[in-house]
Design a protein around this nucleic acid. Structure first.
Lengths: 152, 152
DNA sequence: GGGTGGTAGATGAAATCTCAACCACTTGGA
DNA sequence: TCCAAGTGGTTGAGATTTCATCTACCACCC
């Protein structure tokens, strides 16, 4: 046998459509965020994680786990964000190896300016174009698929 | 007003689930392709476009349009793929500014080796985990959203 | 013929991401 | 106590992507 069974038309068509939507949607959202807030989507994700915390601080490990980024990527990225004044690092008393990332005032201003525009873009380009049932199905799909994707 | 209306729970939940699925699924597919075929997903996309052509050649412009890549990204990427022997460039007689990319024998071998494994991974990680109706809905979503994402 | 504007593609520098070490510290024994 | 293995985080080099610019050519108009 030449290997696994190929995709049939229905599968192929859906899979390609999904890939295309993904690529274009991400690209558009990224460009828009960049243009009107000066942040990348990656910056934004980091800032969102920080604002999700009650005290706007997270352990770097935890952030890496949540974002599923390689730790070196995160470290480099934080260095750049720190250079731009969006976040800061602080030592961790409980574990001298560790560090916290902290949201700065400028970081908070940046995400507070960016978030509403981003939400508007997500609505305009995506949510407003599909029905509530479709949205629910999408969530169901994601919830079914996600557990199979965890790393270890 | 502080800007657009925020996402409600249902929207927020679905949107985040979708983003998470995306990120993790892409990461897993990428790693698997890299590990067992030595190609990146980007390489693969380029090779797929080439094999979709009857004569395994495409104008670079057309490839850029289809992949929606910046032309400089494509140019650099093709240079690297050419260095690895996966593709070649050829001049274009009809328009002396233009070029063709051509699939080499090694490029064909590479994609023929990679494709079945990739399909298997897509099945295992995604298609096998959702129902036919869900897949159809996903296609419908993509088809609704895509037209609003075209560039100009 | 000689502009002028637009298109195809390449190029170099800067930003970002990955990969493989590395260092400092913690943890869990023997 | 001391050592080996593991963890949290950084670093530098190489690969990839973006951004701005450049060259060569086409198409059209004068």
């Amino acid at each position: 046998m030449t290997g696994a069974r190929w995709l049939d038309d229905r599968e192929q068509c859906a899979w390609r459509a999904y890939l295309a939507m993904n690529a274009r949607l991400t690209a558009r959202l990224h460009r828009r965020m960049q243009d009107d807030s000066g942040l990348s989507l990656a910056d934004f994700e980091v800032l969102v994680c920080l604002t999700d915390q009650p005290d706007a601080r997270v352990r770097i490990v935890e952030l890496a786990r949540f974002l599923q980024w390689e730790k070196s990527r995160l470290s480099h990225h934080l260095t750049r964000m720190q250079r731009r004044g969006l976040v800061d690092r602080e030592g961790c008393p409980e574990d001298a190896r560790g560090s916290f990332v902290v949201l700065t005032a400028a970081g908070r201003r940046a995400i507070e300016r960016a978030a509403p525009r981003h939400v508007a873009a997500v609505r305009e380009l995506f949510l407003d174009r599909i029905t509530g049932e479709q949205l629910d199905t999408l969530r169901e799909i994601a919830e079914r698929v996600l557990p199979g994707l965890e790393v270890e």
